[in-house]
Amino acid sequence: MALLDWMSEPVGPVLRGQGVILRSPHASDYAAWSALRGLSRGHLQPWEPAWPEDDLTRAAFRRRLSIYERERELGNAWPFFIFDHQDRLAGGITLSNIRRGVAETGTVGYWIGLPHAGQGLATASVRALTTHAFGALRLHRLEAACVPHNHASRRVLEKSGFRQEGQARAYLKINGSWADHLLFGLLAEEADAGGRPTS
């Protein structure tokens, strides 16, 4: 149980956006996370990699937390859970694939549970993460991708200042099949302190 004890402690920053709070996942989040993911399975699966059979189990959640912690320690990723203004778990957002040196770049990915979809929480979360990435983390560029027919995700990126830069064929394996993706980017000088586009 010692492993779960340290995982239940807050790790990393708490980010605040318009109507959202982003914080690191804790072991105590398992029940809310499992319930939200289970309820949202049909809503999320068309846009995500295939879920393992045990994906919603406590053991799989523990593995997920271990991976998150290792990635944080290496400086490769910053995973957050998204909570709404009533402190309800609404989804997740991650800054991953952080590359330092000549790149100073990271990749943004996010999901919102079905009961919270269409309320602007994804956009608020991307903006909060963008502010952190360009501020405290001093990154120069953020990247994101979505399948062409995921109009909601595309709109989130556009409203957050990301510009479409191209399309990659068979970019990621989504729901068991290789899928083309639209590629988006945002530079630090293109975002203001609130993560909004300056142009």
Results as ranks from 00 to 15, higher is better:
I174Y: 02
L139P: 03
L157K: 13
F81Y: 15
G195R: 00
A136D: 08
L172I: 10
G120V: 10
A145V: 15
P52A: 13
D180W: 01
R155T: 14
D84C: 11
L142G: 06
E143R: 13
L95E: 08
L39R: 01
S160R: 02
H151K: 06
G109H: 04
F162R: 12
L129P: 03
H149N: 10
E165S: 13
T198R: 14
Y30D: 00
L121R: 01
F81I: 15
P52F: 14
L157N: 06
N76I: 13
R154N: 12
L121T: 05
A168G: 09
D87T: 10
S8K: 01
Y110L: 09
A179F: 03
A50H: 06
L114F: 14
W47F: 15
E9P: 00
S40C: 11
L142E: 00
R16A: 09
L15Y: 07
E53L: 12
L39H: 10
T57Q: 01
R154D: 09
F83I: 13
G19I: 10
T131N: 09
A90H: 02
L183V: 15
R62W: 07
H181P: 01
T198K: 14
A124K: 06
A50K: 12
S66K: 05
G113L: 02
P25W: 04
T131L: 04
L89Q: 03
R141F: 06
A188Y: 01
E189M: 02
C146H: 07
V14F: 05
D55F: 15
P115M: 00
Y68W: 10
W47N: 13
N97D: 11
G135R: 11
L15C: 12
L44F: 10
A35F: 02
P49R: 00
A152M: 07
E143P: 10
Y30L: 02
H181W: 03
V102C: 07
S199L: 08
G161E: 01
S8F: 03
Q119I: 13
D192L: 03
E189Q: 07
L89T: 08
R154E: 14
N97G: 12
A27P: 01
S153Y: 02
L137S: 09
L89D: 03
F184H: 01
G38T: 15
G161V: 15
G91K: 11
L95P: 08
N150E: 01
T57V: 08
G42I: 07
H132G: 07
